[in-house]
Design a binder for these strands. Structure first.
Length: 269
DNA sequence: AGTGAGACCCGAACGC
DNA sequence: TGCGTTCGGGTCTCAC
């Protein structure tokens, strides 16, 4: 599901294409996707300029000139499409915005949402998130400090948004594989050397995935060659039984608090 | 504090 | 083909 690299890919594409544009029209097809009555939502959003598109963890922030922000979380199965009245998908869209001549379609928002918030409300909603793993202030020392405060299993911590923001089920496994460490390791058992490997794996995997365009299944616009470029690059995620790209051993799947865990039990220790 | 279960939601996958 | 059923999975909340 959409994690940091996918949302960052969307953020960049959106910033380039619709940043600075006036949202001439907003439509709400599913009221539960938003947080206020549709009339109020449309009244505030329509005619408002989209100043900037930001990201925090797995959230996307559409910052409006009025000081409001649209806070997007795609949760499970949510995705975006940017096209025209005719160039659109054969799928229902829960909300559409028209920044400029094209239309931004919000699809698959069942558990996901697009909430219109004031500056203060936005800050409050994001206040509980952990640090951004790719921020320059997120150093190895800070990561080691974070780890020292956790006693849980490694994977449980990696997907905990309050501890570290942006990593989900897929990248947690990919990061552990890159570091050669089992996701089910107890955090207190990690050596300083392993902590260093994990830190560098977080940087390497997230940056590689961002560069490749994440693992979304649906392109962002007609002819999009970036979005979803990471689909073929996952080393262990959803590859149960396939040979490990490092040692050839079969990749194992297990469950951990109703989450799938993929790992090579031979070269990850 | 960590873990687990239930709720949320509906498209996709599956079974007959 | 087609209808009914099951499942998945991030996050929040509430036990234990």
């Amino acid at each position: 599901m959409p994690e940091l690299p996918e949302m960052e890919t969307y953020r960049k594409l959106l910033e380039e294409r619709v940043g600075g544009m006036v949202i001439t029209e907003a439509r709400v097809e599913r009221e539960k996707t938003i947080n206020i009555p549709p009339e109020m939502f449309i009244q505030t959003v329509a005619g408002n300029r989209l100043k900037h598109v930001g990201r925090r963890g797995k959230h996307l922030l559409f910052e409006l000139e009025s000081g409001h922000a649209l806070l997007l979380h795609l949760m499970l199965g949510g995705f975006l499409y940017w096209g025209s009245q005719t160039d659109k998908l054969e799928r229902s869209a829960q909300v559409t915005l028209s920044p400029g001549p094209n239309i931004l379609y919000f699809h698959g928002l069942r558990l996901g949402y697009l909430h219109l918030l004031t500056r203060d409300q936005t800050a409050e909603r994001l206040a509980d998130l952990g640090p951004e793993p790719l921020s320059p202030v997120f150093t190895l020392a800070q990561f080691a400090q974070l780890l020292s405060k956790k006693k849980s299993l490694l994977k449980t911590a990696l997907v905990d948004q309050h501890w570290l923001a942006g990593i989900g089920n897929c990248y947690a496994d990919e990061i552990c594989f890159h570091a050669g460490i089992l996701p089910t390791r107890q955090i207190p058992s990690l050596t300083p050397e392993e902590t260093t490997r994990l830190y560098h794996a977080i940087q390497a995997i997230l940056r590689e995935a961002m560069q490749a365009g994440g693992y979304m299944e649906v392109p962002f616009y007609h002819g999009d060659r970036l979005t979803g470029g990471y689909n073929e690059r996952c080393r262990v995620y959803d590859r149960e039984g396939e040979p490990c790209p490092r040692c050839g051993h079969r990749i194992a799947k297990s469950m951990l608090s109703s989450r799938k865990v993929f790992a090579c039990t031979n070269c990850q220790t």
